[in-house]
Amino acid sequence: IRDQDRLWQIVDVLVDIGKARGVSGAQVALAWLLGRPAVSSLVIGARSEAQLKDNIAAASLTLSFDERARLDAVSRPPVLYPYWHQQLTAKGRFGPADLVLDRSDI
């Protein structure tokens, strides 16, 4: 874990959304992952039948746009070099593929 404070900020948002929905933070995390564009499946592991049932229930949980936006904002990783440098020095020359990494709104 590189940034423990950031980790707990993510957990806090997961738990807040879960409390508001009456579900576990784990369900929220799994539902968020299932809704990510590049994710086609998840591997889950459980120590108990209750935990397995809780995890499986995430498949039927649909997060709102605002909930997804909150999770995206708090979990978005920082832009690493050379990408942050390119944003400062070559942004005007970015093509469509480069703009995927554009995080200037952060």
Rank of each mutant, 00 (worst) to 15 (best):
S75N: 06
G92Y: 08
S24W: 04
Y81R: 08
I17P: 00
L42C: 00
D98R: 04
P96I: 07
A90C: 09
A31P: 05
Q87V: 09
P82C: 00
E67S: 02
G18P: 00
F94N: 01
G35N: 10
V79K: 13
G45D: 06
A90K: 11
A38D: 12
G95S: 04
I56R: 07
Q87K: 13
I106P: 06
G25A: 13
I44T: 10
I56G: 00
A73L: 07
L34A: 05
V74C: 03
S60Y: 05
Y83L: 15
P78Y: 10
V13R: 01
G18E: 05
Y83H: 14
K91H: 15
Q4L: 12
L99M: 14
L80C: 10
Q27R: 01
S24M: 02
L34V: 05
K53L: 12
G45Q: 03
V23T: 06
D16N: 12
Q9V: 02
G45Y: 06
D16P: 05
L71Y: 03
A57P: 04
G92M: 04
L14E: 03
L80G: 08
E49T: 15
L7T: 12
D72F: 07
R47N: 15
P96F: 11
D54Y: 06
L71Q: 01
Q4S: 08
Q4Y: 08
T62W: 02
R76F: 06
D98K: 00
E67V: 00
A29T: 02
V39Y: 02
P82L: 01
P77C: 11
D5P: 12
P77L: 11
V15P: 00
S40C: 11
P96Q: 09
F94R: 01
L52Q: 09
V28H: 01
D54P: 07
R21Y: 03
Q87E: 15
D54M: 05
L99Q: 09
G25V: 01
L61C: 12
A69E: 15
P37N: 09
A29P: 03
A73I: 10
V43C: 08
K53I: 07
G18C: 08
L30A: 02
T62N: 04
L88M: 15
A50E: 14
I17Q: 00
R6Q: 13
K19M: 14
D16V: 03
L7Q: 07
S75F: 02
F65I: 13
G25F: 03
G22N: 05
V23A: 05
Y83F: 14
G35Y: 09
A50W: 08
G22I: 09
L52R: 09
S41H: 07
A29K: 01
E49M: 15
D12K: 11
S40N: 13
F94I: 03
I106L: 15
Q51V: 10
V79L: 15
K19H: 15
S48H: 13
S41A: 11
L30W: 01
N55L: 00
I17A: 03
W84M: 10
P78V: 13
V74I: 11
V39I: 13
A58I: 05
K19I: 08
G92T: 08
P96A: 10
D72S: 06
V74N: 02
S75A: 07
V79C: 12
D102I: 01
R36W: 11
A26Q: 02
I1Q: 12
V43W: 07
H85D: 11
